[in-house]
């Protein structure tokens, strides 16, 4: 088990390094950073001045290793646009996004698992058909549009929830719901398939024959095994939730990391953007390592490559 964990950690480190390299190259080669910082109407002279001032005149590899140095030491450099340390910006905005991601994940897991289990109880029954149709429809709804429709309906026509800002927990209900439902189809389908397979297996028949109550069989015996593959999907989903926060936070005017990323992109603030891209990637990497370890702990078969 220890060997397994160490292997996963080494892989994660290699992935993190490659991802940082890719992020750095893509964002710094997409456009000339100096002219982006200078703005559209800047003179050639002003651009050259900024190039020297910000150090864009140095070779790419020097700047890359400088950034790696910043990542390792935890001093993330200063933002061009916000004129303050990137680290402070991240710490400031993180709580809103973490609340959003946690709420959205709860919605995904509760809706996805419930609908998936209900659908699997009677394959091809009306509940199953309903759940699958719901999944297909939910997959096709664009997040930002769903958000706007909910704002019109529940914020204005029937004013139940506040629709903009992040000062109370009520502000998080709609955004969490919007971000959460988008991932329900995957969890739903996986739970359904897993449950149908498990419910048809021999040990469930044995449990039934031994006279366990249906509820006990469902939760104690079946769901526990059907949950295994869902663990890794959920860890991946948390990563997507962070990425998806860009849109949801913009629609609902939440002041989190997603909105910070959006505003930093518009402000051509490369240090903040590349730090956010890397931060989201890092969270994803850490979560998938944890997911792997959790799976290996739950199911010893997974420990063998």
């Amino acid at each position: 088990m220890l060997k397994f964990i160490l292997k996963r950690l080494a892989l994660g480190l290699a992935v993190a390094f490659t991802v940082s390299l890719a992020t750095f190259l893509m964002l710094n080669l997409a456009a000339d950073p100096a002219s982006m910082v200078a703005g559209e109407d800047a003179t050639q002279e002003a651009i050259e001045q900024i190039r020297v001032q910000y150090g864009f005149d140095r070779p790419l590899y020097v700047r890359f290793f400088e950034w790696i140095g910043q990542l390792v030491t935890g001093d993330f450099g200063d933002s061009y646009y916000w004129k303050q340390p990137v680290f402070d910006l991240l710490i400031d905005r993180a709580p809103v996004t973490l609340t959003l991601a946690a709420g959205a994940l709860t919605v995904t897991v509760v809706l996805g698992l419930t609908l998936g289990v209900l659908a699997a109880l009677k394959p091809n029954g009306w509940l199953d058909r309903f759940a699958l149709s719901f999944g297909t429809a939910a997959q096709a709804v664009p997040n930002f549009w769903f958000g706007l429709i909910l704002i019109i309906l529940l914020g204005v026509t029937f004013p139940i929830f506040p629709v903009s800002g992040d000062s109370t927990w009520m502000h998080f209900v709609l955004p969490c719901f919007v971000l959460g439902t988008s991932a329900v189809p995957q969890v739903l389908r996986l739970t359904r398939t897993g449950m149908i397979e498990v419910l048809g297996s021999d040990y469930i028949r044995t449990a039934r024959a031994k006279g366990f109550r249906p509820r006990q069989i469902l939760f104690r015996h079946a769901l526990r095994n059907a949950l295994l593959p869902i663990v890794s999907v959920i860890t991946i989903q948390i990563g997507y939730k962070l990425g998806g926060s860009v849109i949801t936070e913009s629609v609902f005017a939440l002041n989190g990391l997603g909105r910070l990323a959006y505003e930093s992109i518009l402000g051509a603030d490369i240090p903040t953007v590349q730090m956010l891209v890397f931060f989201f990637a890092l969270v994803f990497i850490i979560l998938s390592i944890l997911g792997d370890i959790l799976n290996a702990w739950l199911d010893p078969r997974m420990r063998v490559e």
Binding site: I247, V277, F284
Partner: peptide, 11 residues
């Protein structure tokens, strides 16, 4: 691992 929507936006 890369957040594709965010990266696409920036690029």
């Amino acid at each position: 691992a890369l957040p594709s929507l965010l990266l696409a936006m920036a690029l």
